[in-house]
Write a protein that binds this DNA or RNA. Structure first.
Lengths: 202, 202
DNA sequence: TTATTGTATATTGTCTACAATATCAAGTGG
DNA sequence: CCACTTGATATTGTAGACAATATACAATAA
């Protein structure tokens, strides 16, 4: 069967946009999000917007106080950031180990394609695109290893960590780190893949 | 200032009830939840119900398919359960370490009170109450150590694990395990508290 | 008989209007 | 001048009606 392009619900598309706005720093921490404004911006009513805000709150990107609306969450305290980083590492290492000799050629191809897009986004200085492709890469691995259940655990942890990232990324270095991971996986060299992962996450 | 009793929103109360229904096994995995039925049951409109279902979905207790409603999630695969358990352990150990010499007498008192309630619930064979108090105990520690941010990370992990628990709990053994943790914390013996935690989580 | 298509029904998704609550500024008393 | 109350305004929370979509079943053709 030919690879199908996923159909996204209205809510998922809106959520994705606001997520990127937050992660990319467009929306700074403590910014207040107004339901009506967002509804107007996306051309829908407040209902779906409320759903999205609730989701993003659960993902940790927004903080909500009843009857007072939501604001963009602050970056994590250093201690929490370290803990969260170690959780993310644990999950991704678990994924990589489980993927030993499990990835098809198609998988490897798909991962390399994502990295090509990542490189391209870097060159165009499209940092939102960079973020998207970076996340997509890791998500692909997590999903291949543990399905949506694992993705659902990993995702909010990863998102919270993004709140602490410097906005201007490191460029070629980052691309290379990811390439090491794919190549190691393709060669079945798990310990090297794990090392690459740790470098990339740290 | 006197200890204040928290005011809960309608949504939080409904969410709590459905959570307990799921965790206690009242609602078996794959059960379908109908929005209108729930709205009628709780005497509200579908709006708040949808909010709750969205939240519980994000917490991992429900699985949702667009336009098809939500069903109670299945228990975790053994591999995922082990991973998740290690994540929970990491978080709780982090919390306990951070609480070294930080808990006031009031805190210790509060924890002991929760354990009294836990014991009482066991004696009355009120297993929903047992679940509530067990969660409340751990939550207190997590919150004291890392505030709501840490609770928000820990909570969905703990909930997912609950999906795998045997419904009939172990009674006095469980109470004793918790007592060890409190006593160790009160005495500032962190390594013993950590050991106690591991026993309890395993 | 079996597969496919069409139709009826039930359920979710969305919109609009209204109610409840918080915010903020002006006014009042000390 | 400051603290507190009070009212106007804006924003969130909820309800009910409607639209879009999926499900189940019956009808038709190969």
């Amino acid at each position: 069967m030919k690879k199908m392009t996923p159909i996204l619900t209205v809510r998922d598309q809106i959520a994705e946009q606001i997520r990127l706005d937050i992660i990319s720093g467009e929306l700074a921490p403590t910014s207040k999000l107004n339901e009506q404004d967002l509804a107007t911006r996306f051309g829908v009513s407040r209902g779906p917007i409320r759903d999205v805000l609730l989701q993003l709150t659960k993902e940790g990107l927004l903080s909500s106080k009843s009857n007072c609306g939501v604001t963009v969450s602050n970056a994590l305290d250093p201690e929490l950031q370290i803990l969260m980083s170690s959780l993310r590492e644990k999950i991704e290492i678990h994924a990589v180990r489980k993927l030993k000799n499990k990835l098809s050629d198609d998988d490897i191809n798909e991962l390399n394609n994502i990295l090509l897009d990542l490189e391209l986004a870097f060159e165009k200085e499209d940092f939102i695109g960079v973020t998207q492709k970076d996340v997509e890469f890791h998500r692909y691995l997590i999903s291949a290893a543990g399905g949506e259940q694992l993705v659902n655990i990993w995702y909010p942890i990863m998102l919270r960590l993004r709140l602490n990232y410097d906005r201007i990324a490191h460029g070629q270095e980052c691309v290379d780190e990811h390439k090491v991971i794919v190549d190691s996986l393709a060669a079945g060299n798990i310990s090297q893949a794990v090392t690459g992962l740790k470098e990339n996450i740290r």
